[in-house]
Design a protein around this nucleic acid. Structure first.
Lengths: 341, 341
DNA sequence: CTGTTAGCGCGTTCAA
DNA sequence: TTGAACGCGCTAACAG
């Protein structure tokens, strides 16, 4: 059932060039111990024959595949798409290839993907966005390759990771709303069962209220799934409260834009009637009217730094700190009335 | 420089289970010629030892890697992200893995990626969205694995592909605008140098005008890069014409939304003052006010069908038609005044 | 600087 | 139903 026909091997090149396969291997791998004349001759017959190194054979012999596995919740989510760009660019830079798969945030699928990637002998693994459970920890521990978390982290242990300070970021976003003079501030959050993204931002929101002497009202909290529709629906529901909030912190830009449209659809306006602030700063944030104020998360950098970190582990380079915390930035645009914190 | 330590091989399992490695290989590969009792015993020791098949070794021995390479212009583009989902889902279904790389629509990078993927011994290749040049054809011809185009096609030759009828779709979109009563219809197109996407839609637009006795005016045509900002700028420029169009066909939803905002920013409204129709039907189309009328392209299906087609080629299954044309659909929403064609 | 020789882990005949 | 042996294409000592 073999599919590849007539593949030209290193052996063919060696014979044709009148050298040994070891020599051919050397020039292919850039080993300096080859006389320039020989190198030239080999290079020529390589081109003449159209020889293409077999990365699979190379991987078996060298125990390195120069490919890394990336597990991502959902590539059609702008946040992760951008993160992936960062990963890709750095991977290219270091001559690694990427095997990419969506996990749909399902634990079983995540674990299964890790298993598949390990069978494929990836040199390293990047785990994006999901929650790290005990089962994850176990599988991670059994893997004999480095694993870096990006956009998530493991509260337990010291698994390398690249993140931002979610609590602080959420707190700052909420504080901006408070500074505006709002006293009734709503939250459209993510699932609170997720400790790293959902709960942290909820916590930051709560802390901001407390520190400013504002009451926390269960009634002003709605939980969505980070996507547009859930934000739209959450805001509709909020608008129906007895005393609707005058400002809302949405834990993703998609939800924030959904909320914004819910307000507009109800004939009210942002930010005059209700202020809205989002989270992420995906392109959508500036593809809406009014422009969305939000917490700018360095998505590309998170991916890039995580990949860079992974390359260090893969090459046994020293790493200064395994857990990197990147800076976010409050981006105050037109969906809030405040101009600076 | 080997990284993997203490890997358990098929040989370890064989010894531990008291059989030969051939037998272990048979049970791992589901070969029926194994006595149930033996199979059970082997399966047990596999679990006991935590044996994980080495896909690289398997790939070398069997000449099949069960991975396919995907070359995509830009994963952070919603259109391609959705297409990729379709690919992924079908690939999973048939137990293939995906190697994914962005080409940024650069010919050199595309060619280089194809080369890399072939070295990795992918079982097949999916080429998305880009233009197919003579150089592409040559590289494709030298590859010894099946290649399917998705979202693009090669006018020359009969390379398998999955697309929609771009000319017809563009014509229909433009016709909808004409039916509305508009006589000055603008176009925000893609690069006309790209024959399959850019030029085809331009052609459809032109044909619609001609067939309806409307003059084609160079003055009402702007070229963008399919992204939001270019649509915004194109529309601004259009608004400054002596006689601005009363309707615009934008060749991507992103550009359409950009155009929509340009209109709104100028204090005019859609569709009362100017109608706008887009192309693609990405999520953004329904995450904007007014909801964007557009040509709904079955992005997910294009990916899914292309991947399915590729699996057929990879497994030497018969295929009915190599060039698949999928159906688009006119989705008339609120950025146009017309309700149906 | 170059060639010889072992494997890498597994699929696959061919015999038994 | 099972096992022995070879080879996939290449890297990596080890000699020379």
């Amino acid at each position: 059932m073999g599919k590849k026909r007539e593949a030209i091997t290193i052996y063919d090149v060696a014979r044709e060039a009148g050298v040994s396969m070891a020599t051919v291997s050397r020039v292919v791998n850039g080993n300096p111990n080859v006389k320039p004349a020989t190198r030239k001759k080999v290079l020529e017959t390589i081109r003449k024959l159209g020889y293409r190194p077999n990365a699979v054979a190379r991987g078996l012999a060298s125990k390195r595949t120069t490919t890394v596995g990336v597990i991502i919740p959902d590539i059609s989510n702008a946040f992760f798409a951008e993160l992936t760009r960062g990963i890709e660019d750095i991977a290219n830079m270091y001559h690694y290839n990427i095997i990419l798969s969506n996990s749909d945030n399902k634990k079983d699928k995540e674990l299964q993907l890790i298993e598949t990637f390990l069978e494929k002998q990836v040199d390293g693994l990047l785990f994006l966005g999901g929650e790290v459970t005990e089962e994850h920890r176990q599988v991670f521990a059994e893997a004999h390759v480095p694993i870096v978390l990006a956009g998530t982290q493991d509260p337990v242990g010291d698994r390398p990771s690249v993140v931002i300070d979610q609590v602080q970021a959420a707190k700052e976003a909420t504080t901006a709303l408070i500074r505006e003079g709002n006293e009734r501030i709503g939250l459209i959050g993510g699932p609170l069962t997720d400790p790293v993204n959902g709960y942290s931002r909820y916590l930051g929101y709560k802390q901001a209220l407390e520190e400013n002497g504002l009451p926390f009202q269960e009634e002003w909290v709605r939980i969505g799934d980070y996507r547009y529709r859930s934000g739209l629906e959450a805001m509709r529901s909020l608008l129906e409260s007895e005393q609707p909030p005058t400002a809302v912190f949405a834990c993703s830009d998609e939800m924030a834009v959904g909320a914004l449209h819910a307000v507009q659809d109800a004939g009210r306006s942002v930010p005059e009637d209700i202020s809205i602030i989002g989270f992420d700063d995906i392109p959508l944030a500036t593809q809406v009217r009014p422009l969305l104020s939000t917490v700018a998360v360095p998505m590309y950098d998170i991916g890039a730094v995580a990949m860079r970190l992974l390359t260090k582990y893969m090459n046994d380079e020293p790493v200064e700190s395994a857990r990197v915390v990147l800076q976010y930035r409050l981006e105050l645009r037109d969906s809030t009335r405040i101009q600076e914190l």
